[in-house]
Design a protein around this nucleic acid. Structure first.
Length: 417
RNA sequence: GUGGGUGUAGUUCAAUGGCAGAGCACCGGAUUGUGGUUCCGGGCGUUGUGGGUUCGACUCCCAUCACCCACCCCA
């Protein structure tokens, strides 16, 4: 093999490409019904944008970004996530002037990670961003979109977890409380946790090492440290979700990986995906817009992994989409018939009928065989006799029935399938 | 970045260190206008790649690459 695909990437080829197509259609249709419009941003941005927004200390920035320098020495990065670029565009185009923004996106993201089940270096995310209001209603509406989208695909083995990570005001006091709690146990923690203690104390809560788990079991919960406003907000979100009949559980251990999150955090967990069991996640980011240089503006969003969606669909045996299947296969015998039928084929296609014709198949038998093989519903047989009378023998390949129809009536016979 | 597993035909898998095979899929045919079923025929594949051991390597050893699984991280 002369060339191989880069590690951690993959080609989307038929028949899988049909699944992708359908998934995107479903996503777009539902997004539209929620009043969201598409935004597409470049797949690379100034590296700074991500460093600033995701947090210098985050793994994404520290070791997973595809950074490169252009010919003028500017440092760019392939986008590792979709929110920062949307916010950049929001600020750059002053979309705040147009009122609340409901935006959706769909596209590739890049992270230099060790490939694993459900984890790739170029992976695809779909996501929604609501910018402009801090009303907890929007938190609930956005979450309900995500739930309806996933549920609407027929998936059942997932559940929704929500949490509040507080605002800059109460989040800091909580982290201090966590440090105070873990301080006496520092030496008993695993090496990873000792690092977490310094960089991201919240991560101490979901370490998988048994001895760490025992210690973490007694740790204080974020929920006890929420200030009044955050507490109220979180309760309102729950009330809305209940009203919308979206099932959820509260998991105070949910941590968002990127620094910009505040208040509401949520995640859809799927049983049966292996270690990468998070299908989608998101939260509020009320401080991000100001941080990036815009006028302070509240916002909430989520992102989901398409690969993980596909894995889940496969796990539950759900088949979506199908490859192109012709309505009509042309079986033409003899040069005259073949020449004659060519303009008719395109007329049929313009009328919305999928027509297949293969001049490489010479014999009658080969053509019918091909018609059967490509799962065409009908075969239109045209030979010397039919040519004279301007008719075709229309054969139903499922029932085997065949009848002679005038050529001009062919479109009508093929419709209503 | 760390650890474990696996690499043979398009695909799923065989082959004590001794001639690289089978099912499925694919293509063709069974007397020139009727498909699916059946029957017959069609495979030299750098055994992932590069070294090494050996009379001889798909098989053993080393390296490398890729994939899978887990840690980590996250969607």
């Amino acid at each position: 093999m002369a060339y191989t695909i880069p590690r951690g990437t993959y080609d989307i080829i038929p028949p899988d490409s049909a699944k992708w197509q359908l998934l995107k259609e479903r996503f777009q249709a539902l997004a539209k019904s929620f009043g969201y419009n598409e935004i597409t941003t470049p797949i690379f941005e100034q590296s700074d944008l991500f460093e600033r927004s995701s947090g210098e200390s985050s793994d994404v920035v520290q070791k997973e970004m595809y950074r490169f320098t252009d010919k003028k020495g500017r440092v760019f990065a392939l986008r590792p996530e979709g929110t920062a670029p949307v916010v950049r565009a929001f600020v750059e185009h002053n979309l705040a002037a147009l009122g609340n923004q409901k935006l959706y996106y769909w596209g590739p993201m890049f992270r230099y990670d060790r490939p694993q089940a459900g984890r790739y270096r170029q992976f695809y995310q779909y996501g929604l961003e609501f910018i402009g209001s801090n009303n907890p209603y929007w938190d609930a509406e956005l979450i309900s979109f995500l739930w309806l989208f996933i549920q609407g695909l027929g998936l059942t083995k997932m559940h929704l977890e929500i949490n509040s990570v507080g605002c800059p005001n109460c989040s800091g006091t909580y982290e201090q409380a966590l440090r105070d709690f873990f301080q006496p146990h520092l030496e008993q923690l695993c090496p990873d946790c000792q690092k977490r203690f310094v960089t991201k104390p919240r991560r101490l809560l979901d370490c998988k090492v048994p001895s760490c788990k025992v210690i973490a079991a007694g740790a204080p919960s974020q929920l006890e440290y929420l200030d009044e406003a955050c507490k109220e907000h979180f309760e309102a979100v729950q009330a809305y979700l209940k009203q919308m009949e979206i099932p959820f559980v509260i998991n105070p251990k949910i941590v968002r990986g990127l620094d910009y999150y505040s208040n509401t955090a949520f995640e859809i967990i799927y049983d049966g995906l292996g270690a990468q069991n998070s299908m989608a996640g998101g939260g509020r980011y009320n401080g991000l817009i100001e941080q990036i240089g815009g006028k302070a503006c509240p916002a909430i969003g989520f992102a989901g992994g398409i690969e993980r969606l596909l894995l889940a669909l496969e796990n539950e045996g759900i088949v979506l989409g199908s490859e192109a299947v012709p309505d009509l296969y042309i079986v033409a015998m003899g040069e005259d018939a073949r020449t004659f039928i060519l303009p008719e084929i395109n007329k049929l296609r313009q009328a919305g009928i999928a027509v297949e014709f293969d001049p490489d198949k010479a014999s009658f038998k080969a053509q019918l065989k091909a018609a059967n093989h490509c799962k065409a519903r009908f075969a239109a047989i045209i030979g010397e006799d039919e040519l004279k009378t301007r008719t075709v023998a229309l054969k139903d390949l499922v029932t085997g029935e065949q009848k002679l129809v005038p050529l001009k009536d062919l479109p009508d016979h093929c419709k209503g399938l």
